[in-house]
Amino acid sequence: MDIKDIIKEENKVYGKTPVLTDNVMHYCPGCSHGVVHKLIAEVIEEMGIQDKTIGVSPVGCAVLAYNYLDIDWEEAAHGRAPALATAIKRLNPDKYVFTYQGDGDLASIGCGEIMHACNRGENIVVIFINNAIYGMTGGQMAPTTLLGMVTATTPYGRNAELNGYPLRLTELLAQLDGTCYVTRQSVQNPASVRKAKKAIQKAFENSMKKKGTSFVEIVGTCNSGWKMNPVKANQWMEENMFAKYPLGDIKDI
């Protein structure tokens, strides 16, 4: 059978969702952000909620997320996305509202906002990308940086005495009465991508059930920051990150 007989519209089994725009993402090759953007877009398409979704983008690499998902967006100040989302959802309860935040944005400068939004049980979705580094500013230490990990501001490796410990914020948030679904996923291979997508879909569905906050952490890579090629970075993540940040549902009620 000739290739061109296979490549026909009626044989198409997977393609780019129209909820993703045609803009080329500014992310580095192999960046996990692209996969997670795609999953959110696919969930929005499959749930048919493009006109009912408002996204809140962070400060960090994903600051320009609004260029890639064809939905209405608000771009927040550093760390404040959960405050924006709180007001958006309370004032527009018929809308699906999600924040998309990195580890610097959410777990460092925005620690207060995420803690209180989750504690109030805001009916929003939080997508938390944890790649253990500040990507946008050039690879500095994040709260989630592993001990011993070399970054631009821990050139000799993260030292607990000097820099404190890697912050497992997701476990903390699971303790709060306001969260209904807290999970940690990854997107480095097809199986993990499919699981992560299911988690994101569940989180979006929860947000209309008045159950509280749904929090999806995605452990991701930062090839540029980690100074590895994308395939190697995925391996390094599996070998090093998952021990500190184990995958799976932490809370699901």
Partner: peptide
């Protein structure tokens, strides 16, 4: 800080 950013959101 949260208040003013809630204003931004709303």
């Amino acid at each position: 800080i949260a208040s003013i950013n809630m204003l931004y959101g709303g």
